[in-house]
Amino acid sequence: MTEKPLLKRFPILRVILFIGLALAIVSFIGGSVGAMLRDSSPLGFLATSPPQPELPAEKPFASLFITNTMIASWISILVLFGLFFAATRKMKLIPGGLQNLVEFFCEVAINFINDVAGKKWGKLFFPVCFTIFLFVLTNAWIDLIPGFGTIKMNGLPLLRNANSDINVPLMLAAVSFCFVEYQGFKAKGSSYLKKFFNFGLLACGFRQLFSGRFKNGIKDTFMGTVAVFAGFIEGISELIRVISFTFRLFGNMMAGTIVVMVMIYLVPWVIPSLFYGLEALLGFVQALIFAGLTLGFLTMAVTSEEEAS
């Protein structure tokens, strides 16, 4: 099969590529990097302010506690709700248009979750996992709409990527953590807590120690101490997960924002668009990882060791 190269098949691509390259070179020379090389200030229409990343979410309204990330997350909630509401308002057995699209994505998610967790648990896990996925994804992608961050109110941006406010990842991690612990406790009852507080062997060892069987007693006491310590480690790792969840999402989104900011400062034209593409991919991957890890931990929490092996 001899396929002609893309550039030959669509001659217009060559023109677009040329224009893009020219714009990139112009903005490179005229922008901040070129200014630094030329020992002067950047050209007027290319001058951008140096990146000033702001970690805490800004409060655009002076007297209210509402932050710009809150507004952004409300917008993404409205978008998601509108999408689902429009898709399910007039359900038809033979789907068309929007309903078909939404159903397709739901079906893909259901199949994925059923594959990992099994049909019985998949039905329980699906709403939380898929909602986390959709929320993270929408937050990340809404940020990529051109002009999203440029609307100003009282000199502060009115909208900002909700994932880059540490409260949102922390909130999602907390929801995921609570859901995992709740499902684990519900599935296994009090034996779930034994994973963290494993005093059985230690108590047995002490009893043997006091009743005179020193050799067994010492051995069991030692092993019991190890088991208690292992349970402690288990509990700590469960808490560490929350932090890891939080900082993975927060760091990725913040890094993306900062990279785009820096690129806009260095080369104002064309090049930041490429990083927008990267950001879109990253947002999807992070959403997938957040939901997928939650799903994995849920599955681990509800399946006992006997079942797994």
């Binding site: 809150m70 409300w74 898709a87 709403p127 909602t131 949102v168």
Partner: peptide, 18 residues
């Protein structure tokens, strides 16, 4: 506030979507 927003989203999507 974000927690409440998320829970509202979860409820809305569960009842109107899933």
């Amino acid at each position: 506030s974000q927690l409440i927003s998320f829970l509202i989203l979860l409820a809305l999507l569960t009842f109107f979507g899933y």
